[in-house]
């Protein structure tokens, strides 16, 4: 299959352009998504191509914007609503959690909400309320799907799939990913199902499970551990809900050791859910450790930010400690 190298934000814009071309009812809403092209240019070109009716700038009103996007989807459109920073998604959790996630259930199937809430997580010097990774909050909401790609090809593939789902999907990208580049298949087909993890680096001694930007950290840690004789299998979760416990479990059944890595908080985090679900699944003894943000807000102060965020060095150290006396 032929492919083309794209920046991460270009992969998002391309997926949206293709889906908007295919589906007249798809409407994009959010702050600065119009002529400005999105805070990270991830909507570049859409306004010029599809016009102001379908690419709608919204006021600074996350709660109503999300509600409007979800209500419009419930009433027959398909919508993607952009919430610039995931911290502000908190303002719109009411319509997302209380209405959209439950709409199908509470109406006995009479109402579906085919909408994508796209939002950007991650710390990058902007401070405590522009930095959070709260995707684990959403994993426990019945009716929500949560997607968090780590590279342009997955962003493209998973966004296209998300835009064709019949229920609400939260699509989480990351500030540090937009400038990364990668090969994206030229095909216009949708072939990347939600709920499938990917082995991005095979290994035999320990499974490193991560999602979004943290996958890059996991790969870096795996490269550093190789000379020390530790072979790491890196798994990119890609979708957090539903979680591909089968693939992670299959890997951990071989390595017998699991290190989870995430940029969010450790308590009730993605890693604790992954580890518990893997333990429930396997009847063999496994070693488990987790790496996450330290339990503090993420400051805009570079020294403090670096201290709180997980990095490859902490993954290396945690992995070596876990495997001690193997």
């Amino acid at each position: 299959m032929s492919s083309r190298r794209l920046f991460f934000n270009e992969a998002i814009a391309r997926a949206l352009a293709e889906e908007m071309e295919r589906e007249d009812k798809l409407v994009v809403l959010g702050q600065d998504v119009g002529a400005y092209g999105g805070a990270y240019k991830e909507f570049a070109g859409l306004y010029e191509r599809f016009g102001a009716q379908r690419v709608r700038d919204t006021p600074v009103a996350e709660a109503a914007t999300i509600g409007i996007a979800l209500g419009a989807a419930a009433a027959g459109l398909r919508t993607l609503v952009s919430i610039t920073y995931m911290d502000f998604l908190i303002l719109g959790l009411e319509p997302l959690v209380n209405y959209a996630a439950k709409a199908r259930y509470k109406t006995g199937g009479a109402v579906r909400v085919p909408a994508v809430v796209k939002t950007t997580a991650g710390a990058k010097g902007q401070g405590v309320a522009h930095a959070q990774c709260i995707e684990s909050w959403l994993m426990g909401v019945p009716g929500l799907k949560v997607v968090a790609p780590s590279n342009p090809a997955d962003a493209y593939g998973l966004l296209k799939t998300s835009l064709r789902e019949e229920g609400p999907v939260v699509f989480v990208d990351h500030k540090r990913l937009f400038s990364t580049a990668g090969e994206v298949p030229e095909t216009n087909e949708v072939s990347m199902p939600l709920g499938k993890a990917a082995i991005v680096r095979p290994g035999t001694d320990v499974t490193l499970a991560a999602h979004s930007y943290a996958v890059r950290i996991a790969v870096e840690a795996a490269e550093r551990l190789e000379p020390a004789g530790v072979s790491c299998e890196v798994i990119d979760l890609r979708t957090l809900a539903p979680l591909d416990v089968e693939s992670i479990g299959e890997s951990v059944a071989r390595t017998r050791a699991l290190v989870t890595l995430e940029e969010g908080q450790p308590a009730c985090g993605v890693g604790s859910e992954v580890a518990f679900r893997v333990r429930e699944r396997l009847d063999v003894g496994i070693r488990v450790a987790r790496v996450a943000a330290r339990p503090a807000p993420v400051s805009s102060n570079a020294v403090l930010e670096a201290e709180v965020l997980p990095d490859a060095a902490r993954v290396v150290e945690t992995t070596l400690t876990l495997l001690e006396g193997r």
Partner: peptide, 13 residues
């Protein structure tokens, strides 16, 4: 909670 949902339904309309 019904207000913004209603606005969305009216946008679709």
């Amino acid at each position: 909670g019904n207000l913004s949902i209603a606005a969305g339904v009216s946008l679709a309309a």
